[in-house]
Design a protein around this nucleic acid. Structure first.
Lengths: 142, 142
DNA sequence: GAACGGATGTTATATCATAACACCAATCTG
DNA sequence: CAGATTGGTGTTATGATATAACATCCGTTC
């Protein structure tokens, strides 16, 4: 039942590699910057590659950052959960099956049929929370 | 422990009224359109009013729509859950305390301290799911 | 070889959001 | 009262994100 993997074009592969190598979210324009000089010169090419990768479940879009990350466990996902540190920018993808079930149940109670579920948590990661004892730390510049 | 309510300026009140009256998400520029001719002529004024209203817990930003809605139950919220119909555009705010607790628990397991939790479900509302029997309905134009 | 689907290139533009600075009114505060 | 501070606003300009519309190319299928 695992969705069949379509072969990826060269641009698509390149975008996925860049995201994987970065290990953090990149905006479409970050990617475009890295792809200039490789024959990619305009936003639509990047957005099209990203659309495909998101459809294939290889990349997630993080709505609250307007950015994209390589999926940490490339199943076909209709749900993604992220914990985003507002101090250091660290983004962690969480997976929790009971949460998904509970969300489906909650929305189902109102007759809603969910096809995509996004959970984004903002706050401080363990390391930054530890550092932030009393001395008001300046938050991560957007 | 209910956060003290700051008095609202005229612009802030006006923005909140417009959002309440709309009963659906409006973008900052939708609001600006409605406020032209009332002395509001530029985006920053609208964004500043929205920032304040969000800080006060009276308005939520819906990340996946880049839009704003009046909070249905104006407590001070650090969590919001929305079900967004991709067919008719209906947006419903859900409240579920166990979900909030579970999210806090999940993130806490990794040492993450969440200050804001966003849950956005995309799919079809009860009415549109009922209509969508077989005949592929064209989705709501963005 | 015509038709098609999928990807790309290109130009232009739409949409969303903020920087930087000036001004004003209300409220403290010495 | 004078000066400082805070919060809101106006204004201009710009930055950042995303898509429309149209042309081309290429491999597959019929």
């Amino acid at each position: 039942m695992t969705a069949r993997r379509q072969p990826l074009s060269q641009t698509q592969t390149r975008v996925l590699d860049l995201l994987s190598a970065a290990g953090r979210p990149l905006s479409a324009y970050d990617l475009l910057g890295k792809l200039r000089g490789e024959g990619v010169n305009a936003p639509p090419t990047v957005y099209r590659a990203l659309d495909k990768l998101v459809r294939e479940g290889l990349v997630h879009r993080i709505e609250s950052l307007n950015a994209f990350v390589a999926c940490s466990t490339p199943h076909h996902h209709d749900m993604a959960t992220f914990a985003i540190c507002d101090h250091c920018g660290l983004v962690t993808e969480l997976t929790d099956r009971p949460l998904q079930d509970q969300l489906a149940a909650i929305s189902g109670r109102s007759g809603f049929h969910a096809t995509r579920m996004m959970v984004e948590l903002r706050g401080h990661c363990a390391a930054c929370a530890a550092k932030a004892h009393g001395h008001g730390a300046p938050d991560h510049a957007h």
